[in-house]
Structure formats: structure tokens, C-alpha cells
């Protein structure tokens, strides 16, 4: 899977073709063919994404009453969010949530992928087991973990850990930590499988060669694995970032924003305003803010990978 900055042409364009062939059929290649091939995809994406996002932008600039658009209010809805400490607190928590989840999920996926890449007995079994959370929906994941972590009747027995009671849902920091843990649990399998796939393209001979050189595993990882994995890690980072910023169902079911508002994320604000409180305009403003964060992070990754390529 590649996501790269579109302005930069692919590194290995499989052209020019041999000159003879190129001359042979230069004009018979239908000029409209590529457009015809690409058009259906663009059209479907445009109808389902672009019209609604324009619609949402418009909503965010209006006062709404249930599903009715009322007065144009300019940026008032945004001002209500960005002008309040609660709004910034949500943004801050979203950033913590996303960054901490990434910081856990990516190294973990890389590590597990590395393990799964080595010949081992029951490799298929391990792969199937480790990737299983991938097919668990967010609702179910949240419910199961809520139960596991419950201090009173959870099977992990957190009510009495060497005499101390650990109630993660009563403590703001622990609740956020638990939320991040569950988030990582449902999202690392996709990252792992992408990393695993990328690892398989690294020729074993390269690693052997570095062994001969006497390089330790960490040097090898830094000199060989990491550079070759960079494009994949970039894709993984983008996919996970989008997933995390936009996460609603998991948070709603796991903590619903509590305790003490400690897990109130921008995505949850967007959901509540739109679907629980019927403030569609304000809800749209929250989701546009999410959109902006997605773009900013996406652009930052693109910039990062480009500068790495230069250096």
C-alpha cells in the first residue's frame, strides 16, 4: 500500500519503454483511456465524500435547529469551540490520545511483525491469534475490556492487586491510559500485518551480510530494516492517525468521555453534538476541526518522508 505525495513522481516509473516500441504505436494509444479508467473511482468518491463534506462545511457556518438550517453565523461555531477552554481541552486530549497510541502501536507492531517473520513452529497459529483483534468491532472491544478491567467483578482481579484497589475508570489518567491500551489492542493487527509484509521484502541475504560484518541486532535494525521499512511505516502512521483522530464508537462505549471529562475527545464532541444534542452546526464544526488535524498530520508525514529521502 503506498501513499505518497502526488506531486512527486513515483521513483521507479517503468518508462521510458524501449525506443523502438515507443515509436511503433505512439498515436494508437487512446488518449481518453486513462480518464475512462479513473473516472468511475473519482466519481463515486466525489459523490460520497465531497458533496457531504461541502455540506458539512456549510452546516458548520450556520445555526441549526434540529435538521433545519437557520441563520448564517460565520465562524461562530468555531469560535465557540476554539474560544473555550473546554474546546482546547478536548483538542489537547485528542492529541495525547493519538500520539500516545501511535507511540505504542507502531513499535509494538514492528516488534511483533519481526517475531512473526522468523521461522517458528506454529507460525500460522501465532499469526492467526495475534491478528485476531483485527476482526473485533469497537463496540465489542470496549465492552469486553470494560469488564476485564472492572475492579469489582473483572476477571483480572484489579480490585485487589497486592492489597491496592486499581479502579482505572475512577482515575482520569488511568482511564485515558486504559482507553489508549484498548485502542492499541484493536488497531495494532492491521499495522502488524503491513509491517510483516514489508519485512518480507527485505532480502535475508542483507541481514546475513550484516551479521558477517559483526553488526549487532540494533545496528542491523537501524541500518537495514528501518530504512527499508520507512515507506511502510509512513503508510501505517497515516492510516492509524486517521483512525485514531476519528475514533468515536470505542470511546463512546468504553468511557463515554469520563471520568471528570478525562477522555472527552474532539471526535466524541462531534458525535454528541450531532447525534445526542442535535446541534448539527456545532457538531459539523467539531468534525471540520478533526478534518483539519487529519490534513495537518498527513502533510507532516509527507514532509517528513520527503526530507528523509533527501538526506
Amino acid at each position: 500500500m503506498t501513499v505518497k505525495s502526488p506531486e512527486a513522481p513515483p521513483v521507479r516509473e517503468h518508462r521510458p519503454v524501449p525506443a523502438v516500441q515507443a515509436r511503433r504505436r505512439p498515436s494508437t494509444r487512446p488518449r481518453l483511456l486513462p480518464y475512462g479508467l479513473l473516472l468511475p473511482a473519482v466519481v463515486v468518491v466525489a459523490v460520497v465524500s465531497v458533496f457531504p463534506i461541502v455540506f458539512a462545511l456549510n452546516l458548520s457556518l450556520h445555526e441549526t435547529r434540529f435538521t433545519q438550517l437557520e441563520d448564517f453565523v460565520g465562524l461562530d461555531n468555531y469560535a465557540a469551540i476554539l474560544g473555550s477552554s473546554a474546546g482546547w481541552a478536548s483538542i489537547g486530549r485528542s492529541l495525547i490520545y493519538v500520539v500516545a497510541s501511535l507511540a505504542l502501536a507502531i513499535p509494538m507492531s514492528l516488534g511483533i511483525a519481526h517475531l512473526l517473520n522468523r521461522p517458528a513452529r506454529f507460525r500460522l497459529v501465532f499469526r492467526a491469534l495475534i491478528l485476531m483483534p483485527w476482526v473485533i468491532s469497537q463496540t465489542v472491544a470496549a465492552l469486553l475490556w470494560r469488564w476485564l478491567l472492572n475492579a469489582d467483578y473483572g476477571p483480572l482481579g484489579l480490585g485487589d492487586v497486592a492489597g491496592t484497589r486499581i479502579d482505572v475508570f475512577a482515575d482520569p489518567v488511568q482511564a485515558m491510559a486504559a482507553l489508549i491500551l484498548v485502542n492499541v489492542w484493536i488497531s495494532y493487527p492491521l499495522a502488524t500485518i503491513l509491517c510483516l509484509a514489508a519485512l518480507q521484502t527485505i532480502p535475508a541475504e542483507l541481514e546475513e551480510a550484516s551479521d558477517v560484518d559483526g553488526a549487532g541486532p540494533f545496528t542491523r535494525f537501524r541500518r537495514i530494516t528501518l530504512p527499508m521499512m520507512a515507506p511502510t511505516l509512513f503508510v501505517v502512521a497515516i492510516l492509524l492517525t486517521l483512525l485514531y483522530f476519528n475514533m468515536v464508537t470505542l470511546v463512546l462505549t468504553f468511557t463515554a468521555g469520563g471520568p471528570f471529562g478525562a477522555t472527552q475527545l474532539v471526535s466524541l464532541d462531534a458525535f454528541n453534538e450531532s447525534f445526542s444534542f442535535f446541534n448539527l452546526g456545532l457538531g459539523a464544526a467539531y468534525s471540520v476541526i478533526l478534518f483539519v488535524f487529519n490534513i495537518v498530520f498527513g502533510a507532516a508525514y509527507i514532509k517528513l518522508i520527503r526530507s528523509e529521502g533527501d538526506g
Binding site: I53, L59, S267, A270, L280, A284
Partner: peptide, 8 residues
């Protein structure tokens, strides 16, 4: 974000 375009 999916949440942005659900209603529309």
C-alpha cells in the same frame, strides 16, 4: 472524518 459526513 466519517463523523463529518454521516448526516449529509
Amino acid at each position: 472524518p466519517g463523523i463529518a459526513i454521516l448526516v449529509p
